[in-house]
Amino acid sequence: MEVNSQTGGRGRPDAEGGARRPRRSLGQLAVQRLLGNRLALVGGVVVLAFVVLAVLAPVIAPYDPAKQNYLALNEAPSRAHLFGTDNLGRDIFSRLVYGARTSVSVGVITQLIILGIGLPVGAIAALAGRRTDNLLMRLVDVVYAFPDLLLIILLRSIFGGSIYMIFLAIGLAGWSDMARLVRGQVLSLKEREYVLAAVALGAGGREVLGRHLLPNAIGPVVVAVTFGVPRAIFAEAALSYIGVGVRPPTPSWGTMIQDGTLVISAYPHEVVSPALAIALLMLAFTFLGDGLRDALDPRSARAAR
């Protein structure tokens, strides 16, 4: 990857597909390539399955995730309780399903916040240039210098414990990468021949931005979001695990792991299922993200071979 970006940028003919490719089919081509990639497809299906689980949680979960049953503490998996029960007699499967709801919403909402800040900051910095660029990028430098999880914890202690505030804290700590990415994209695209040609032909700022810059910058942004979602999900789980994330009774895989590790020697099944859920979702997102990157940027696919 790294090597390629040094040698491949200008040297390799970008026109390879450009000449043949009919207009507006970049997206279709990407979808085609994505569907051809089996691992990415599997990743996409798994991600989709978790989303369905999250949306349909009340229908799928057999029990109330917060309901405690003192007659069924720490039960092993059985037909009544698919993944067993925890130390308060709560059904682990139901908690997993509702935990997917927490994780998926963390993933989606934080990425929206990150896009909402990072996209305009990066684009404005690149387009305005000079002083604005300098100012915005120095701000980005400062945010970037914060260790992610520490900043999230710091922000969280100010915002309080509501789940929405956790979204906000993770989003506010994570937008600097996005701003840098978008700025770099726009800066390099701005100098491309087709953009210069559009400007020379009298295209206005809005047309250049909407028609040429944004559509071409969108690929890496989509990939960054795909890798950002699992990072946010992990951040929430980690915070909840150390006890400063989602508050009970809201089920979260992180809190389930925290509860489970306390009884790990006696009842390992209690910690296995949430840990597996996190691992599975992370893996799925990585496959999907790798596939998307290859699909949206054919050059990186060649380098990874």
Partner: peptide, 29 residues
């Protein structure tokens, strides 16, 4: 490489704990 590149350390740590401490009793928790 592909599986471990996406599994966070603390999730892997839990599986290690279950394997080496809770099941095999080889390592202290």
């Amino acid at each position: 490489a592909t599986s471990f590149a996406s599994i966070p350390g603390f999730v892997l740590g839990i599986f290690l704990l279950i394997l080496f401490s809770a099941t095999l009793h080889w390592l202290p928790t």
